[in-house]
Computed example of a mutant assay.
Amino acid sequence: MRLLEIIIKKEDKEALEKILDVEEVIEKWISETVDEKLVVKALIRDEHTKELLNDLENKSDCRVVIHPVEGVLPKPESVENKEDKTIGFGKFIAISKEELYSDVDEPVSLSANFILMVVLSSFVAGIGILKDNVAIIIGAMVIAPFLGPNMSMAFGTTLGDLKIIKKSMITGVVSTLIALVISFFWGMLAGDVGNITMDPKPSIEDIILALVCGFAGVISALGGQGGSLVGVMVAAALVPPLVRAGLLLGGAYYTDALNSFVIFATNIICLNIAGIITFYLAGIQPGKWWEKENAKKKTRNAFLIWSLALALIIIAVFLIRKLGGDE
């Protein structure tokens, strides 16, 4: 459930009551403010929050504050009308577009904490790779903030929001360069890094895994289940191949470094493709009709670009396996 605090002008009271006159609105309260406005508090079922906010988005001079609800007493009765038993993709969504805005903004901010987490995860991954310790490598995956920029880029692409896309791209490029520079100089100073365990040659299974992780990550975010993202971060494996590529590049093992970087690039591409598809199917789109058409065009173009990049990766995978004498 969500508690919506809606601030409107007095003359908009009747129109708002029509919007709130649905069975998913459990209860509502109206109070008056000192500046001749009304504050309407409505307790809403999760599945209706997105539709209601879309209706309110087109109203001018309307401010909505969204509060998550842990529980209420007495317990609200279930909706009696069960005629429509069709379960659509949107039924699994427990979080609104407005709440997603807040969730994707923090992970892509180039704050001191974000940069520190990138640096720390790079060192942890490097130690795990050099010691060939899987547990340490998994620890680097968990603390690495690399998943956030890719999810937010897919979110911004679906909305056609250039501000989010630009912010995500800058954060992703900067964090990638930080990890790559650290591991590159580490590889130069570490001596012979040729004995570290190499990434396996990229395969179709790696592409499928990255796509599945992308779908899982976005569905977890849409369902408001941020805690399950830890498992997605581990499965996505963005930091280890990037750090391994830097170590090998610093040690002048260029072919092996390229192999690791291809795996890193594959994960990035697949995460974005899966994110765009999932956000689009979930109905994440701007509220205004002219923005929807623009967003669809940007989403289509971005999807084609990422798909082309994935096709090139698949071709590279087959070439690497063929040139490497795949058994």
Rank of each mutant, 00 (worst) to 15 (best):
Val108Glu: 02
Ala216Thr: 04
Leu52Asp: 09
Leu110Ser: 05
Lys59Val: 08
Asp206Lys: 05
Asp84Glu: 12
Gly275Phe: 01
Phe123Ile: 10
Val239Ala: 07
Phe318Ser: 05
Val193Thr: 07
Asn301Arg: 14
Leu281Asn: 14
Glu83Val: 09
Arg244Leu: 13
Gly224Thr: 03
Glu99His: 01
Val25Tyr: 07
Ala125Val: 01
Val108Gly: 00
Leu304Cys: 10
Pro68Gln: 08
Lys166Trp: 11
Glu17Pro: 13
Met141Trp: 03
Glu32Ile: 03
Cys270Asp: 01
Phe155Trp: 05
Phe185Glu: 08
Phe123Ala: 09
Gly325Met: 09
Ala15Met: 12
Lys97Arg: 15
Ile137Thr: 09
Ile320Lys: 13
Ile305Met: 14
Ala309Thr: 05
Leu258Gln: 13
Gly223Thr: 04
Glu70Cys: 02
Glu32His: 11
Ala94Lys: 15
Asp84Cys: 10
Ile273Ser: 07
Gly324Thr: 03
Gln225Asp: 13
Gly148Gln: 01
Leu242Ala: 03
Ile315Lys: 01
Asp326Ala: 15
Ser96Tyr: 00
Pro149Trp: 01
Tyr254Val: 11
Ala42Phe: 05
Lys37His: 13
Gly139Arg: 06
Val262Gln: 03
Ile6Gly: 00
Ile136Met: 12
Ile66Asp: 03
Glu205Phe: 13
Lys13Ser: 14
Gly160Phe: 01
Gly187Pro: 04
Glu77Ser: 02
Glu23Ala: 08
Thr255His: 12
Glu14Asp: 13
Ile219Arg: 12
Thr278Tyr: 07
Asp12His: 09
Val243Cys: 00
Ala235Cys: 06
Phe279Ala: 06
Ala216Ser: 07
Ile196Ser: 01
Asn54His: 15
Gly223Lys: 12
Leu308Ile: 12
Val124Ile: 07
Val218Lys: 02
Leu162Val: 12
Gly226Lys: 15
Ile273Cys: 01
Leu53Pro: 08
Ser121Arg: 03
Gly172Pro: 04
Val181Thr: 11
Glu27Trp: 13
Lys13Val: 09
Ile178Tyr: 00
Lys297His: 12
Lys288Gln: 12
Ser183Val: 02
Phe155Leu: 09
Val39Tyr: 04
Gly227Leu: 10
Leu16Tyr: 07
Ala125Ile: 03
Ile320Trp: 08
Arg300Ala: 15
Gly160Trp: 00
Leu38Trp: 02
Asn81Trp: 04
Leu116Glu: 09
Ala265Gln: 11
Gly246Thr: 04
Ser111Gly: 05
Pro241Asp: 02
Leu43Asp: 00
